[in-house]
């Protein structure tokens, strides 16, 4: 249902493109995992769409998202709110991403899909699998660098443990 039937096999052979997309995805994970969230909006285009949605809503065709940023400014606001206003127990994520595939060209960009799992560690040292799922991306090139035009994180989980404040 995510375009797998229209995969362009030429893109599988484009190892340079794949390396660049992998680097963007890794940069995203590292910025979050290293708590450098202020750098996160710069990985997106100004008009980017960032959504975190449960698989339940996604598969029911329901539009509700846990986080919905229409433009990188809203993503920056999320980070500002987290730093200045929201109250929560300190915790960090460790992303593992895998199964990247560049599915097809779309306009001037590329549709890509990858899987993720996130282990969350609380300040008392306890770790748990917080979420797993898939990223559905539209990636474009801006001034010679790849950026997310869209990143939709689909969470397999239905139940969020306690709260969600750090972008997925």
């Amino acid at each position: 249902m995510h375009g797998n039937l229209t995969v362009s096999h030429d893109l599988d052979a484009d190892l340079v493109l794949r390396a660049r997309v992998e680097a963007l995805c890794a940069a995203y994970a590292h910025v979050i995992d290293d708590d450098r969230l202020e750098e996160l909006p710069a990985l997106f285009t100004d008009d980017a769409l960032y959504r975190v949605q449960t698989r339940e809503n996604h598969e029911l065709g329901l539009p509700l998202a846990l986080m919905y940023c229409d433009g990188s400014a809203m993503l920056a606001d999320r980070v500002t709110a987290m730093r200045t206003a929201n109250i929560f127990e300190p915790h960090v994520y460790c992303h593992s991403t895998s199964a990247l595939r560049i599915l097809r060209r779309e306009g001037a960009g590329w549709r890509a899909r990858s899987n993720f799992s996130i282990i969350r560690t609380m300040s008392d040292g306890e770790s748990m699998v917080f979420a797993c799922g898939k990223y559905l991306d539209l990636i474009v090139e801006v001034d010679g660098a790849l950026r997310f035009r869209e990143r939709v994180a689909i969470l397999d989980l239905r139940r969020v443990d306690t709260l969600l404040v750090i972008p997925v």
Binding site: V52, P63, L64, A65, L66, M67, F88, V160
Partner: peptide
Amino acid sequence: MAELRLKVNNLVGPAGLISMEDGCVGG
């Protein structure tokens, strides 16, 4: 209106900018 509701819903829910604290304070 459909779009506005989705955006306003950033304020509420498990990741809600004005509601997330209720998820942890009871604990």
